[in-house]
Amino acid sequence: MPERPEIVCICGSMRFLDDMRAVSQSLTLAGHIVLLPSEIDGPIADEQKAALGELHLRRIDLADRVEVVNRGEHYGESTLREIAYAEAAGKPVTFVGLAWGSQ
């Protein structure tokens, strides 16, 4: 058994939050520590959104690898930025695409 569990940061559009939660549950049950984007109810100001984006990059810094959750092949600007950041930091990036309607 490793000294500590692998830390996985999940990235993806908040439109796929339910999918990210399902991936988080699976990873957690497999013995990983999971870092997810912050869930904020209601509207947020542009500066708050930027601050949350920077905070998520710090999660990537803490992670051993990044798991990108998506449906299809389109990635938004924030997710592309997170992928590029992780790759530049030498973090392995894996992708999981869930089918529409799956849970």
Rank of each mutant, 00 (worst) to 15 (best):
M1L: 13
P2I: 15
E3V: 10
R4Q: 03
P5R: 11
P5W: 05
V8R: 03
C9V: 07
I10D: 01
I10K: 04
G12E: 06
S13L: 13
S13I: 12
M14A: 12
R15T: 09
R15K: 11
F16W: 15
D19I: 07
D19Y: 15
R21I: 08
R21L: 11
A22W: 13
S24C: 07
S26W: 02
S26I: 03
S26K: 08
S26D: 06
T28P: 03
T28V: 03
T28F: 05
L29K: 10
A30D: 15
H32Q: 10
I33W: 00
I33T: 08
V34I: 09
L35Q: 08
L36T: 00
L36K: 06
E39N: 10
E39T: 12
D41S: 11
G42Y: 09
P43W: 15
P43I: 12
P43E: 13
P43H: 13
I44S: 05
A45Y: 02
E47C: 05
E47Q: 06
E47V: 10
Q48C: 07
K49Q: 10
A50Q: 12
A51K: 12
H56Q: 09
R58D: 01
R59P: 02
D61M: 03
D61R: 04
D61L: 00
D61Y: 04
D61C: 01
L62A: 07
L62N: 05
D64H: 11
V66Y: 10
E67F: 09
E67Q: 14
E67S: 09
V68H: 00
V68W: 01
V68T: 00
N70L: 11
N70S: 11
N70T: 11
N70D: 06
G72R: 08
G72N: 04
E73G: 08
H74N: 15
H74R: 15
Y75T: 11
G76V: 08
G76A: 09
E77N: 08
E77F: 11
S78N: 14
S78L: 15
T79H: 11
T79M: 13
L80W: 08
L80F: 13
R81E: 02
E82Y: 05
I83V: 10
A84G: 02
A86I: 02
A86H: 01
A86K: 03
A86N: 00
E87T: 13
A88E: 02
A88D: 00
G90V: 10
K91I: 05
P92G: 07
V93G: 03
V93Y: 07
T94F: 11
F95G: 03
V96T: 10
G97R: 15
L98H: 12
L98P: 07
L98E: 07
L98R: 15
L98T: 09
A99G: 03
A99D: 07
G101L: 09
G101K: 10
S102I: 09
S102K: 11
